[in-house]
Amino acid sequence: MRRDTTGRYEITSTAGEAVRAFVPAPLPPKPPVVLEGPLQTLHEQALLACGRLDGVSSLLPDPELFLYAYVRREALLSSQIEGTQSSLSDLLLFELEGAPGLPFDDVVEVSSYVAGLEHGLTRHAEGFPLSSRLLREIHARLLARGRGADRLPGEFRRSQNWIGGTRPGNASFVPPPPGLVEDCMAALEQFIHGGPEGEHTLPVLVRAALAHVQFETIHPFLDGNGRLGRLLIVLMLIEAGVLGQPLLYLSLFFKQHRSRYYELLDGVRQNGDWEAWIDFFLEGVESTASGAVATAQRLLELFRVDQARLMGLGRSGVSVQQCYRTLRRRPLTSVNQLRELSGLSFPTASKAIETLVGLGIAREITGGRRNRLFAYDAYLAILSEGTEPL
């Protein structure tokens, strides 16, 4: 459906140049979005896929061990969309050693995304509502280090920004003037929580689709808007109870369909084609949720097979089992970390990881005799699928 009015333009001056900045109309769209026909069917499929994902997460022997790596996978993918070139192993090595890694700024950026995401999840668990304040808190952690640290972390922008082009005059899109950002975000927060009456008239997957576009259109920060806008989706789904664990991230889908993603955002802004965007978004939810279910099932099978290989080890079996459980929690690790997390002594942990290497479950990756590092290659391979740099 095409809509005549999706917002208005404000003529402002930036660097001595007249600029047409777009101010989006408050959500929900008018006339309202209607779920019917193929769109309704797609919504039902996406919701069922989320239910299957929420169910399979309860089958994991320890959801935290999956979340540890899965959250980092999302941080990597979301940051790659912004142009970083790190790998999952780069990030895990950086967190393990604080080592420079290559490229250093990219790894710091991905690590900061992890910090921001985990802060948002912790605050939610504490009962703090999804709000502009929480988004600013997360943003402060996203930009705490490395590139962007001088781009007002945790604060709405106080100057005009733009997307594409070398200056506002040749930009592909100019968000609202800085003086209107606060009001736009207040309206978005009100929509997220059901409007003035606090009652939702649209299902949460559709609300998340609308809110993501609105956030990206407002572009309230000088930097980090893309990453935070993608994180907003999963926070909304968790707050609404659609997901019990933060396991649904659309960054891989957006990365794989990057051109279409930006084309549809422009379609909403230019002619109000929310339905085309929602169709794409729901397709992404269904595809991503189904992919996450398949990943979780593959990991469960990997753990089952490798666990079976540890049977019959005799007296050393108990310590090797402890070491293996720790390796599942930290698939790239050192003997020191194994010792700390498993409670084993250094000699016992060292001997146990050597047993896992001998069985082909772990691999020593430094080739040295000191400060050795070990990788659970099969686990990392599954989690790294689709994370190759753009």
Rank of each mutant, 00 (worst) to 15 (best):
Q297N: 14
V71A: 14
T387K: 02
I365A: 05
L188G: 07
I81A: 08
R8Y: 08
D106K: 05
Y9A: 01
R328V: 13
E137M: 11
S87C: 02
A211N: 04
A208G: 05
L338V: 09
R325D: 13
Q307Y: 14
D4T: 13
E189M: 08
L27G: 04
R136T: 07
T201Q: 14
L243H: 08
F128K: 11
R167Y: 00
G317V: 09
G358K: 02
E97G: 12
R230C: 04
L237C: 07
E182S: 15
L222T: 05
D54K: 09
G98M: 08
L282Y: 05
D266L: 14
C50H: 11
G272Q: 03
A375R: 13
R3D: 07
S159Q: 12
A46C: 09
G312D: 06
A349L: 08
A292F: 01
V285I: 15
R328P: 00
F253R: 11
W162Y: 10
N271R: 15
S86Q: 07
E199N: 04
L102G: 00
L205I: 04
S259L: 13
P24S: 03
S111I: 01
A18P: 12
I163S: 03
L67R: 11
V181K: 03
L60S: 08
L231M: 11
V320M: 09
Q307T: 15
E10G: 00
P61L: 10
F374P: 10
R207Y: 00
A15F: 14
V107L: 01
E286A: 15
F221P: 03
S384M: 02
Q322F: 13
G343H: 07
D150R: 14
T166E: 13
P177S: 14
L252S: 13
E263Y: 11
E286R: 14
A349G: 04
P28N: 05
Q45S: 10
D4K: 13
R227P: 05
Q40H: 07
T217Y: 01
M236D: 03
L92H: 04
Q297G: 08
T366C: 08
A211T: 08
G55Y: 07
L202G: 02
R339S: 12
D279V: 01
